[in-house]
Amino acid sequence: MKQNQNLREDEQKFRIIFDNSIEGLILWNEANQIVDINGSAEKIFGLPKDRLLGQSLLDLFNQVGEKKQEIINHIEQVTKKGEQYSTIVIKWNDGRLRHFDYSTKRGILEGLNLTVIIDVTEKADMQEQLRKSERLNIIGELAAGIAHEIRNPMTALKGFIQLLEPSIRAEHSMYYDVITSELARIDSIINEFLILAKPQEIRFTEKDICQIMRETVDLLSAQAVLYNVQFSTFYEDFLPSIFCEPNQLKKVFINLIKNAIEVMPSGGTITIKINQFDDQFIQISIRDTGIGIPKEKLNKLGEPFYTTKETGNGLGLMVSYRIIEEHNGYIHVESEEGIGTIFKIVLPYRHES
């Protein structure tokens, strides 16, 4: 009698632990059918328990992404070794990629196996940001050496070209203009290299982020007209001022808006929104209605010399990432081919050293 009571108590304890675990738990039998699933697993898959019970474990993952073979391999290893740890990346129906760690123990109860699944998407995103930051630091070190090596002869070239200007004949003036404009372009690239090379000595002041964006939009309005592009702006009222270097942020906004204009050669709309994000951040989003960026190329944005434009060099976006990083913020990009791209910049109210 006491043994039965102890058994019931153990079952109740197991049920409490199972139901309230913050990790997704799935109990399944030797026929790969789901016998039980807890609330955390329901949230992970976005499906109710009554719809999942009795389903095959393979079908569960197949509903959110074509990952049947990976699950088959996982189950085979469980059968051989009794347990297995795996990771999986699933593309959800809304296009988002989600990362999961999951492990299975065979025979946790008689005829039953237990799979524990954890959503590690946020951790994976942070690791990707760290890798991108490390790549920026490496290219920054290379950029410092390249920029200084090029700048010295550049200074001499610019000086001698200016000395030659009075003696240049009228029929050769076009050559002079091409040379000076190309030298100016090289100088601009060198300056961007130097921004990448090291954090700039900049002074942070308290500024209205909406005013900085207004000035940027005014600056680029003429170029937008040439491309038949219209601006649509939404600035949330009563936003707090942020500590920033306004000229540096303006450079980021110019880079992103110019890119948005250039990906819509036949015209379109650029939607700019500034709003409070969470309790300590402001979000600036810049959306275009261009051709969009393929999913496989999104993660490469901001990498050294990577660009989706035929005439681009990738430095503008690299510089933008660097500047936002120096402001303790981050840039998140979403895109859908044929619909457009949105750059989201998240900045804290206050800059911490």
Results as ranks from 00 to 15, higher is better:
40 S>Y: 09
98 R>I: 11
199 P>R: 15
165 E>F: 04
201 E>Y: 01
286 I>M: 09
295 K>A: 14
302 G>E: 05
213 M>D: 03
83 E>V: 05
270 I>R: 12
247 N>D: 13
73 N>Q: 12
173 S>Q: 11
267 G>I: 15
3 Q>W: 04
312 G>D: 09
173 S>K: 11
42 E>P: 06
337 E>P: 09
339 I>F: 10
145 G>R: 09
202 I>E: 12
154 M>A: 06
95 G>A: 13
335 S>P: 06
14 F>Y: 15
93 N>G: 05
74 H>K: 07
268 G>T: 08
316 G>D: 00
311 T>Y: 01
172 H>N: 13
90 I>A: 09
273 K>R: 15
96 R>P: 02
217 V>Q: 06
55 Q>N: 11
321 Y>R: 02
262 E>Y: 06
249 L>S: 07
231 F>L: 02
166 P>W: 03
267 G>R: 15
306 Y>L: 12
295 K>R: 02
86 S>T: 07
255 N>R: 00
249 L>Q: 01
329 G>A: 05
196 L>Y: 12
60 L>T: 01
38 N>G: 05
153 P>W: 06
61 F>R: 00
42 E>V: 05
123 K>M: 15
79 T>P: 10
87 T>Y: 09
340 G>C: 10
26 I>G: 02
202 I>G: 12
294 P>E: 11
196 L>R: 06
301 L>C: 12
291 I>E: 07
115 T>F: 05
68 K>T: 13
123 K>N: 13
349 Y>H: 12
76 E>V: 15
295 K>Y: 14
146 I>H: 05
302 G>C: 07
326 E>F: 06
272 I>K: 08
310 E>D: 07
1 M>A: 13
58 L>T: 01
51 R>D: 11
100 F>E: 00
221 S>V: 05
296 E>S: 15
